[in-house]
Design a protein around this nucleic acid. Sequence first.
DNA 1: CATGGCTTTTGACCCGTGTCAAGTGCCAGT
DNA 2: ACTGGCACTTGACACGGGTCAAAAGCCATG
Lengths: 253, 253
Amino acid sequence: MKPQRHTSAPAATDSCRGALARVSCRSCALNTLCLPARLPPQEARVLESVVERGRQLCAGASLIRAGTRMDALYVLRSGSAKRYAFTMNGAERVHGFVLPGETVGLEGFASDRYACEVAALEPTSYCRIPLNRLEPLLEQLPGLRREVLRLLGEALDESLRLRAELGMCDARGRVARFLADLSRRLELRGLSPTQFRLSMSRGDIARHLGLTLETVSRALGTFKRSGWVEVRARYITLLRPEALASMGGYAAS
Amino acid sequence: MKPQRHTSAPAATDSCRGALARVSCRSCALNTLCLPARLPPQEARVLESVVERGRQLCAGASLIRAGTRMDALYVLRSGSAKRYAFTMNGAERVHGFVLPGETVGLEGFASDRYACEVAALEPTSYCRIPLNRLEPLLEQLPGLRREVLRLLGEALDESLRLRAELGMCDARGRVARFLADLSRRLELRGLSPTQFRLSMSRGDIARHLGLTLETVSRALGTFKRSGWVEVRARYITLLRPEALASMGGYAAS
DNA sequence: CATGGCTTTTGACCCGTGTCAAGTGCCAGT
DNA sequence: ACTGGCACTTGACACGGGTCAAAAGCCATG
């Protein structure tokens, strides 16, 4: 068993940055969102013992290289990242953006190799769950087994839903939906749902939504002129979130 | 234990239709494609003991109702089906088409409820793997555990790739890709890759590719005029599959 | 064989978005 | 402060594909 070192103040505060000790999910700010949150406490404790803390990544650095052997799952602790891949004609395609508490690397189960590149969009830290430590736990812990299946199912469901809904609305609807979705996810993390910084470029957003960066820019321009948002470079303020939500087809399902 | 009745001739021939006995994956025509194919033989034998044979569905009948509690995985034995769902504005969205040997119901892991409706497009038969029998096996059989993860990963990967590639090519490219993909999957099942019947309507294809049925029809018309395909109602002959494949961005990856 | 209903094809038109190009703003380095 | 580079905005234009409408095929039924 590895030595366990505690920060004297066990405050579960707004950031994990300071802590240099080994992972303690219970004292992590993300404990209500992250993978262990849905596990029975004793299973969470076992899982905790195999989680490794990754070092900080600078903006642009890759957390996962597409095509490399899958050897771990990763969970973001802070910062943000984009998941992307290239089509055979060399065009970059952005599959999505990753926020703290979200798991990446799941598509690797398909072929034992990661299918997406995952790169930090700003200084970003993460946790790592090595597969060779995870697999034995899947045998012993039924809750963890169900949770991994749930995560995969959720990723699949989200991907299907995204394709369906983006395919049905026009450019402005897609951008509206993107903002509404981001807003919701930020709120879940205790951040302001109406005022935030976009860590990704217009081009990244465009390549995610299947548009061009000019069209994204124009959509934002329209929202600005309608008084729905305020845009200053990458800083966004949502003035009429309901308008965006309804335009993006974000009705109460 | 249920009674086991064997057909006297154990021929692994081209169809499972005749057999009325309980499931015997080893003698099934799909045994090289289906879920057990990638399992170690002894695990496959255990899995076989929990698989139930479903009765034949007629065209239009639902195999899975969206929103109902997830209680099983399903594998198609013969026929074909479409997976679809409705967006909140009531528009139908086709997530994909299912061929024999393919597994459906995986998205249910997200929330314990099926997210897609799955309906037969022609007379169709299937196998059923109840979850309450599958779960204990996941604890005991490491190969099965990996295989279920692989299936989910594959579904996820395919969904991502589909979204990426469809988003980047024009209407004709999408239809070409659709035909090339179908052709490949039919060939895997030992059927002709160049001559087949489309069990789905133009509208279904359109709702799957994010187009309108008129555009799908026009794309087929173009291919016909170029001499790439022959179209007679729902019967299709691919005359220049390579042309379609390259247009759909189906290069050797 | 005729009928009616459904699916598919074809045509005409127009809007939205991609494309190309120029212009603006922001930041870092010299 | 100047400069070069990059991200973003804005404008003009063309075209692909959505929309509406009508005609043609296909298949059932009586």
